[in-house]
Structures are given as C-alpha cells and as structure tokens.
Design a protein around this nucleic acid. Structure first.
Lengths: 211, 211
DNA sequence: CACCCGGATAGCCGATCGGATGATGCCGGC
DNA sequence: GCCGGCATCATCCGATCGGCTATCCGGGTG
C-alpha cells in the first residue's frame, strides 16, 4: 500500500456517537480507530498511550473539562495529534475557543460520512478543515469583530438574566448603582442592543450566558 | 430461539449517530435495525415499508418537522410502532411534547448501550421507559404544574427578546400599548418573574423561546 | 511618560416600565 | 346559561431605566 494508515482516537461522552464514528471510520481502508475516551482525563491518557495522528473531539464532555480545554491539554503533550473537532453546534464562541485551543479542524455531526473521512485525512496531513457553515460564521465575524465582554460584564449579565434591578445588582456585587448602570451601558454597546431583555437574549445566543 | 427478533427503525439527522446506534443495536442477537431515516418524511415512509416494532426517534431533525411532530404522524399510521425517543436533552418541554405526541419512552444519548438495549426491549413490549433524569424532571414538574403561556404571549416574548419596547411591540402586533402591558403582566405571573430580562431568560430556559 | 482600557462612582432627566384596577367581547367546556 | 381563559383596551402613578457627561484609579502598552 501507498501510505501508513491514519491512527484516530475518539473523544465523546456519548457511547452511541463513539460507536457510530468507530463503525464508519473503521470501515475505511486507510483509517484506524486506535482508542476512545469519554472524558478529558481519559483523552489525555489514551493519547499518551496510543500516539494517534488525529483526535476526533466532541466539545461537550459532560461534567469535567470541556472539549476546548481538553484540546489545549492534549496539544501540550509531546508530539501531539492534530485535533479535529466534531460536534453538534457551530456557535461562534465554540469555534473560536476550539481554534484558539489548538484545533486544526471543525466539523458538525450532521456532516455526511464522506466529508468526515476527507476531514480526517486532511487533518492528518496538517491541513485546516472547516465545515462550510463554520467557515461562513468565521468570515462574518471577521468582518464585524466580536466585541469582547469583560468578566465583570458577564457577571452583570448573569444577574440581569435573573431579573434583578440595578439596585439589587449593586447590592449583590457590592458596588454602587451607578457602576452597574455604567456596566450595562457598555454591555449594550458591545452587544448592539439597547434594552435589558435584548441583552439577555443576545448574550444567550452568543453563548456568553448558558441557559 | 425463544422469540421473534425486534425490528427497529432509526430516525436521526446525524449520519454518525445512526451508524452508532446501528452498530450497537445490530450486534445484539434479538435486535434488528431494518431501516433508517434522516427526516420526518423519510421516517413515515420507512415505517410504512418496514413495519418495525420500535422507532428510535431523535427530537431535532434539522429543518423540517421535528421529532415530536414526526412521532405524532407515525403514531397515526395503521399498526404503528412504539416510539422510543433517543435524544440529547431532557428539557421538560421536550419530554412533555414527545410524550404527548405518543412516545412510549425517553432516553438520553449519553446512556450506556446496555440501558439502550433494555429500553428498546421494554418499549417493544409496550412498557414505558424513562431515563432516570427524565423521570426526576417529570416528578418535579408534576408537583409544580407548568403554567402554559398562550400563543399571543409567546409572540410578545419573541419581540421582547428582540429588545422591543411596549410601544414598538404594540405597533408590530397592531394592538394598543395597554394590551401589550396586559400580556406582559400575565407572562410575568406565569413565569414567576417580574422583569422583562427575567422573562426572556426563563422563556429560553423553558424552551418557550429558541435562542 | 503619556495613553488606553476596565472598573468604579456621581448627578440629571426624560422615557419607559410595572403594578393596580376595571371593563369589554369572544369562545369553549360544564 | 354560566364561568373561565384569552385577548383587547384604558388610566393612574411611583419606580426604574437608559443616555449623557464627567471624574478617579490601576495596570498594561507603546
């Protein structure tokens, strides 16, 4: 044969998904699933043991560290595998976090198997592989840069979603009401809204807040 | 052998998940995957052709009708299969909608394979199978009944999430501002909040609004 | 050393919200 | 036929919000 077979490790907390990817990938002549992991710690261990070429990573891994954090950990290992994110959502925040953590590719789980195979092969060669919808999102946001909300502003948003008034937030955060209002003004500007309700909706949509 | 093998059809828009469930289920002696469908229309067609005992149903099927609606359609067929919902989320609204549509069971995708097999066998026998977390939720909500928001109130919530003021909503809905305020008051009462921001957050959490 | 940014603070003021109260019409179930 | 829920509208009023302007401080960055 022409090449070495590509060694793949799966990281996903859903047994069903692991079985599915394994069944599909193992049926390919040039691809080998050499390990599976259900959480972050297992992932690091399995990668160390099996030295795969590509790591297929789900972003939501249940309770512990998420896929992005796990990607970061794995990429810090000696001779790390390329990480191909395979997940359900293409939220801008998720994509950016994953890429920032060192992922080489981002695919969605509703991708047809053929696309998955192509992506694995590409990732193994060190290419960057993005799902079309993901690529679109990145371009969109590149044009209009994402306003980063500060940690303090996120705290405000959390209280906001709980329906607190400015006075109550001020008490909760041990600051003055004026400060809360100031933060809110900044949040409105950054999120492109001008009401509290709009801010909450946008924050949840942008995954700044979790429902 | 003792019994007829149980005929299973999979409905899921993710090829990966279908492959996974198929791999797992087909490996069981007494279970047979006799068909797959990626959307609602396919599901109805495949069920008609294959006459399965159990339908494994994902709730989110991409663009068209969702899993709940599909369940309803399938259950209206002659000699319909029992429907076992296999999905990622255990939101109260999702569970209730599915059960209301005629589902006999509700399992989460992170369930271990053994539990999935048991659930399929139970569902085939006509039993009701609920994931533990789902059962918990149902009990919780049974104690404190869910207030139903009316269609009109949902419209208000949608506009609210877009950050509109009462005056703007009134214009949008072709009613008076007083009416909007009235609706809002009812919404607050039903959702147990007293601010617009809180209403939006609660509505999204309760899946009344989609992010 | 300037400069900017995040965070905190203050006061002002018009617009808006939220609660209370009350009324009308329509529809569907008992 | 009555009652309840939904949808509509109205008025009043105090509380709150959102925009504006301006100041202060500490930590980076050039």
């Amino acid at each position: 044969m022409a090449e070495q077979r590509i060694r793949v490790v799966l990281v996903d907390d859903h047994p069903v998904v692991r079985a599915g990817v394994r069944a599909l990938v193992d049926a390919q002549d040039d691809l080998d699933v050499v390990g599976e992991a259900a959480d972050s710690a297992q992932a690091v261990a399995v990668v160390g043991e099996t030295q795969p070429d590509v790591l297929l990573m789900d972003l939501s891994l249940g309770d512990g560290p998420g896929g992005a954090e796990t990607t970061r950990l794995v990429r810090e290992l000696p001779s790390p595998p390329h990480v191909l994110v395979l997940t359900t959502y293409d939220t801008e925040a998720d994509v950016l976090e994953a890429v920032d953590a060192g992922a080489s590719g981002y695919l969605l789980k509703d991708a047809p198997p053929e696309e998955l195979f192509r992506a694995i092969r590409g990732t193994a060669r060190g290419e960057t592989v993005l799902a079309p919808s993901v690529a679109n999102r990145l371009l969109q946001r590149a044009a209009s840069p994402t306003p980063k909300v500060s940690p303090r502003e996120v705290e405000i948003l959390r209280l906001l979603a709980r329906g607190l008034g400015n006075k109550e937030m001020a008490r909760e955060l041990l600051v003055s009401e004026a400060t809360v209002k100031s933060h809110l003004s900044h949040i409105y500007t950054k999120l492109g809204v001008d009401t509290r309700a709009g801010a909450v909706a946008t924050a949840i949509e942008r995954r700044i807040l979790r429902p």
